[in-house]
């Protein structure tokens, strides 16, 4: 069980990496390789060239403004878990990072790699949706920003062009009184989630968002539930109804797991 042969370029700058991706048919960017590695070993993925991004300093930048923290795509889950990357999200990101796979994976896998891979069950996908983060995408023509909902089109399918790299995420700085809830259903610690519920409530900033994730498709923002949460109205029934509507056509057990994940995440913020 070994990968099909490929070439490897160790990029040292974003322009180098973008140029290498654009110049080769079948090239693929890789950072930690914790999702791509298994696919290579199983020969499900057969890239002609891998462009390794681990040496690109720009992907390790941290920039702070009054409203946002921009986290370079090359920070690992472990560094976010440990607080090496400062938290501005009421503890949500550190907690989510702690729950990703296993420590040996968290020490190598990166937030940008996970998002670019766009697995619906991946934690950062739901987390960026609930935070209404902006994904920073760098290509030959410069930089563009995208919401998760616009970036992720379907399972494993994103708006990234062949020569574009997800270079950073901009997450909002939440108020000191903000609260976050996150619940995922897994049969075993570290496994891919079977259901995710994520909630952010920041009354000072007038922000409330509730997300239902790991739905085998991009996560959905539960708009009516979010509105009810912000107004301080009861959310239990509206959340149940919204999850049911969003997952119509899925088996009853699938819908029940997602209702429970969302209800428990809501419970964590006292709703």
């Amino acid at each position: 069980m070994k990968p099909a042969a490929y070439d490897l370029t160790l990029a040292t700058s974003l322009p180098d990496a973008v140029a290498a991706l654009g110049a080769h048919e079948g090239a693929k960017a890789v950072s930690g390789g914790c999702s791509l590695g298994p696919m290579l070993n199983l020969r499900l993925a057969r890239p002609s060239l891998l462009v390794d991004l681990r040496r690109v300093e720009a992907l390790r930048a941290l920039k702070r403004s009054d409203t946002h923290l921009e986290i370079g795509a090359g920070w690992t889950h472990g560094e976010i878990e440990d607080g090496v990357v400062p938290d501005v999200t009421a503890g949500l990101m550190a907690r989510v990072a702690h729950g990703i796979a296993y420590r040996a994976v968290r020490n190598r896998g990166t937030i940008g790699g996970s998002l670019a891979h766009a697995d619906p069950a991946a934690d950062w996908v739901s987390t960026m949706a609930v935070l209404d983060a902006r994904l920073v995408i760098t290509g030959a023509g410069g930089t563009r920003l995208s919401r998760l909902g616009d970036f992720m089109i379907a399972a494993y399918t994103t708006s990234l062009a062949d020569d574009e790299i997800l270079s950073a995420v901009q997450v909002p700085v939440l108020s000191a009184t903000a609260r976050a809830g996150y619940h995922k259903v897994c049969r075993k610690t570290g496994e891919f989630a079977q259901a995710i519920g994520a909630v952010v409530l920041d009354r000072e900033a007038g922000l409330a968002r509730v997300v239902c994730g790991a739905i085998e498709a991009p996560p959905v923002v539960l708009e009516a539930t979010s509105a009810a949460l912000l107004k301080g109205e009861p959310v239990e029934r509206v959340a149940d109804e919204e999850v049911e509507a969003a997952l119509a056509g899925h088996p009853a057990s699938f819908r029940a797991m997602h209702r429970a994940a969302v209800a428990r995440a809501l419970n964590e913020v006292g709703a």
Binding site: A61, L62, T67, H68, L145, Q170
Partner: peptide
């Protein structure tokens, strides 16, 4: 010893309004 947080560079992150979904 606990992990030491890296201090972010103070910079105005260019948050342009992304196209809404």
């Amino acid at each position: 010893g606990g992990a030491v947080a890296v201090a972010p560079v103070e910079a105005v992150a260019e948050v342009a309004p992304a196209p809404s979904a």
